[in-house]
Amino acid sequence: MSLIDTVSLPRSFRLPRVDGLIQWIVPLAIIAIWQVASVTGFVPTRVLPAPSDVVLAGWKLLLSGELVRNIWVSFWRASIGFLIGGSIGFAFGLANGLSQLSAKLTDTTLQMVRNVPHLALIPLVILWFGIDESAKLFLVALGVFFPIYLNTLHGIRTVDPQLIEMGRIYGMTDSELFRRVIFPGALPSIFVGIRFALGIMWLTLIVAETIAASSGLGYMAMQAREFMLIDVVVLSILIYALLGKLADSASRVLERLTLSWHPAFQKR
């Protein structure tokens, strides 16, 4: 099917199942080509193991329970760090979006801190926390904080002032105004922040686990490198890709559920 066909075809004629599968064609094709390249010896297995070897390595780790344990540890760190950093960012975004005083007080400071790459803090964080859990959580939370803070603030600041005036005219109290006008108005922007933050969350976690950890996916990959287990290294990288995709999908579903009013999310 050519591109023009897919574009011009009315939505109702397309099968939703097929629609959902289309996005997987390219990743699957890449894996197929990769497998062929490895089997024929075009790519030496010392450089890149065949997908089948990676799957096999994954199966072994799964049986030993190591894989599940490491994924769980990384997932746990990612979510807790995200929750902590996200809530603080959201709280500051709300406060600075709603109150001029709060914005004057904290915004400049936060903008200064934002310009320090948070991964540059790793040496300091290791000195503070060692290679403890709190070190990873701190880094993830810090990385997640800024996109959520900035987008929440931006969302609240850009709520249509005419709608706010309308709400006041119709006698909305402050809490009603927030619930019915300001928060829903800021929500699309907050979601942009969440999706940025999810990307940063994985990035931070990988780096932190690679440098200083005794468990988790990043640790698993570094450990495998020590023993030249290249299939496990590739496996870890692929799992990161999958987890990243999963997190993004989750936020998309949430977005679709809460923004069903938005023209961009309406079924035509």
Binding site: M166, I169, G171, R180, P184, W261
Partner: peptide, 26 residues
Amino acid sequence: IRVMFQEPRLLPWARVLSNVEVGLGR
């Protein structure tokens, strides 16, 4: 006392009926 503006100023995230309910005030 009610005002109607040049722009409809409807809440895009509320269905038509609940937009009308906003007008009930208290």
